[in-house]
Amino acid sequence: MVRIIGILIGLFFSGWLLVSFGMGAKEYITNPPAETAEHEFHLEAKEISFSSDGPLGKFDRQQLQRGFQVFKEVCSACHSLRLVAFRNLEEIGYSEEEVKAIAASWAIQAPDIDPATGEMSTRAPLAADKFPKPFANNVAAAAANNNAIPPDLSLMTKAREGGAPYVYSLLTGYQDPPTNLPKANQPGPGLHYNPYFANLNLAMAPPLAVEDQVSYSDGTKASVDQMSEDVSAFLIWTAEPKLEERHQAGWAVLAFLLIATILAYLSYRTIWADVKAKKKKKVTEA
């Protein structure tokens, strides 16, 4: 009796869920939700390619160094790079001495503890240190950035849909709001219109606004597009510094699998050739 009651209750709830689903589906079809301004004005990331794209992609180390220069002179004032150490810069072409010099000259001091008193102190960063945060904590970061906390950039090209093209599009996408933008979506005080951002307005002012904002050491013309592309490429590296090794390992695995498959097929042919010959012999003798 208890089992029957349980079955009936289960059928009741299953039927109710089915009816609710059907009613919801009917409502969605007959009265679809109206698109918001975010859907109407939001743009997909621009099409742009990087040397690291594709299974054969490799980093352009000269571009990575230019991108690091943009990060150092512009982005590091607000954004952290907490998963990258100064010594990792050797992977993009800097020498050990250059890395030490970069760390020692970094504008932000690294946190430390005074061995004599045990109190918190600061010191010049070392090559082994991670990049220091530009703000002591989130409260200080929000206070300096219109109540918005600048995100860490270490994994930005992995964390955002669209990856590096999204970062590039965001940096080059600042513009005046269109005249038909609803009043509710107009950028308020301290906000800036950018159709590549999810809700169209963000607190970050255009970080790369004028040409030659950075003076590239290799003589490359520092246009806004060039600086945006270079720093986006640099952030691809920070998010996946072992990308080239992964590509190489992938091709090695594919080559191994191909050779193993060929050897397995040849072994199969050899083994079954003997079996078929023996069967044929037995049939002939019979």
Rank of each mutant, 00 (worst) to 15 (best):
M1V: 00
V2H: 01
I5F: 00
G6P: 00
L8D: 03
I9N: 02
G10R: 03
L11P: 01
L11V: 07
F13C: 00
S14P: 07
V19C: 11
A25P: 05
K26P: 01
K26W: 07
Y28N: 05
A34Q: 14
A34M: 14
A37C: 08
E38Q: 06
E38A: 11
L43E: 11
A45K: 13
I48G: 08
S49N: 15
F50A: 15
S51F: 12
G54M: 15
L56H: 15
K58R: 15
F59Q: 06
D60L: 15
Q62K: 12
L64M: 13
L64A: 11
Q65G: 05
R66K: 13
G67A: 14
Q69V: 04
E73M: 11
V74R: 05
V74S: 11
C78D: 05
H79M: 09
H79S: 03
L83E: 04
V84P: 00
F86P: 05
N88P: 07
L89W: 00
E91I: 05
I92C: 02
S95G: 04
E97Y: 01
V99D: 04
A101P: 02
A103P: 07
S105P: 06
I108C: 10
P111N: 08
D112F: 04
A116I: 12
T117S: 15
T117M: 09
T117I: 09
A127Q: 10
F131S: 09
K133M: 13
P134T: 02
A136W: 02
I149C: 03
I149D: 01
S154V: 09
M156S: 02
T157K: 04
A159I: 05
R160C: 00
E161N: 07
G163Q: 09
P165W: 07
V167Y: 03
Y168A: 07
L170N: 00
P177C: 10
N180I: 06
N180L: 12
L181A: 04
K183R: 12
N185W: 02
G188P: 03
G190S: 02
P195D: 03
F197P: 03
F197L: 09
L200R: 03
A203N: 09
M204P: 06
A205F: 10
A205C: 11
P207F: 09
A209D: 05
A209G: 06
V210F: 03
E211Q: 11
D212V: 03
Q213R: 07
V214S: 04
V214D: 01
D218G: 11
S223I: 09
Q226L: 05
Q226E: 12
E229A: 10
D230L: 11
V231G: 08
F234C: 08
I236P: 00
W237G: 13
W237R: 10
A239Q: 08
K242H: 06
E244K: 12
E245H: 14
A249L: 11
W251P: 04
W251Q: 12
A252Y: 08
L257I: 13
A260S: 15
T261N: 12
T261Q: 11
I262A: 14
L266A: 14
W272P: 03
V275S: 08
K278G: 08
K279L: 08
K279F: 04
K280E: 14
K281P: 06
K281I: 10
A286K: 15
A286H: 14
A286L: 15
